[in-house]
Design a protein around this nucleic acid. Sequence first.
RNA 1: CGGGGGAUGGCUGAGUGGUCGAAAGCGGCGGUCUUGAAAACCGUUGAGGGUCACACCUCCCAGGGUUCGAAUCCCUGUCCCCCGGCCA
Length: 414
Amino acid sequence: MVDLRQIEKDFDTVSSALERRGVEEKVLERLKVLFEEKKEVQKRLEASQAEQNRKSRLFGEYKKEGRDISQLQREVAENKERIAALNEELRLLETRLFEIAATIPNIPDPDVPDGEDEDDNVELERILEPTLFDFEPKEHWELAEINGWIDFERGVKIAKSRFSALRFEGARLERALINYMLDFNRKRGFEEVCLPFMANSESLFGTGQLPKFADDLFKIEGEDLYMIPTAEVPLTNLFRDEILKREDLPLKLTSYTPCFRKEAGSAGRDTRGMIRQHQFDKVELVSITTPDQSDTVFDEMVSCASDLLSSLGLPHRKVLLCAGDMGFSAAKTIDLEVWLPGQGKYREISSISNTRDFQARRTKIRYKEQKKNIPVHTLNGSSLAVGRTLIAIMENYQQKDGSILVPQVLREYL
RNA sequence: CGGGGGAUGGCUGAGUGGUCGAAAGCGGCGGUCUUGAAAACCGUUGAGGGUCACACCUCCCAGGGUUCGAAUCCCUGUCCCCCGGCCA
């Protein structure tokens, strides 16, 4: 959630930063005006309430002293109407303010490059050279077919398109990867957490999926519950509405969950294979930090995911997302893209974001700093998308006959 | 899902419709004592808004209602506990 006080105080900076994300200045103007109006109404309301409180207390005295209360009664009744009217006015302003503010994305960090989409992202570093083959490498769905690892048709039969089933070594490798990733993250200081796979609307508001992106969520009928689109939601919301102790920060958490996404608006993209599914496994990292720690922890999270890929022998690169390509809640995002020799392309396998205090204000996660409650910084990142890791292993470890070697570090997990 | 009981500050737990934002205890923080610590004693200790700082406003699960005035009375919802049903 944007900080309305910041808009009030530092309008030009905020509006030019948000312009990079396509937020028009007039929207912010409107917010600023509404915010000022609200404060004005609130002042008048509180004055009336103070008067009402004062006069109500007089009733007791008057009765004790046997004085006439009819005059007082009239005044109080009159004031009561005024309060009701002001209350209504305030409620209206707050609703409008909230509706606008809730749909404004986070302010990008100064070092985030300008740009509109993925073409404007900046490659930072390549790790490991792309795998070389003395034959034409196959795409993962061909390999899946040869080895019987992914059953696309039956997945569709059970649910619908963009669902699949893993079988044989594919199923076991998926589970091995989850365990390997969790262990890896734990050794890097992330506490393993086991979470609900559904979350209520308040949680989804907190991390920024609601109200704007309801179309991409699977909703449970008749319940205020959604299937989680990422473990970031339950992991961050663990501490919603809480005031944390400074010495407990940073909190560094990791969790495996399946993720559920409608993929509305991506019709026709990656329809072949397992790149884009309605349900996929992911091991997630979430950190909750003080503002001064968050850059350090961000780097730790990027390293963690990158080292994880390296340990699996998977070539990848780090990409700094431009302002236009970042997610709603992010102030800064680095994507890790893994090399897929079958496709001959780098594809996103991890996305690590610092949301600064954006989610913290929505979730009201704070910590005590010299008697003051300060919003924390929250960060999230994948380490890694399990299904895409499986694909990357298939394509990078394929042999000429279509069989697939298992990376060394995974062998003890099978 | 059916019947009964609850929801109060970090925790436990009082609370008569009228200075109750709320007793008490525990915990936390500060201090006295001590070489240091424990014990004991003293003080302090909810959140949000507002203000230079006060004042002031809001919050006793949530939302409505009764009343001049609600933690306290009424309605609705949510959650928790106990009994039963179902179930891994």
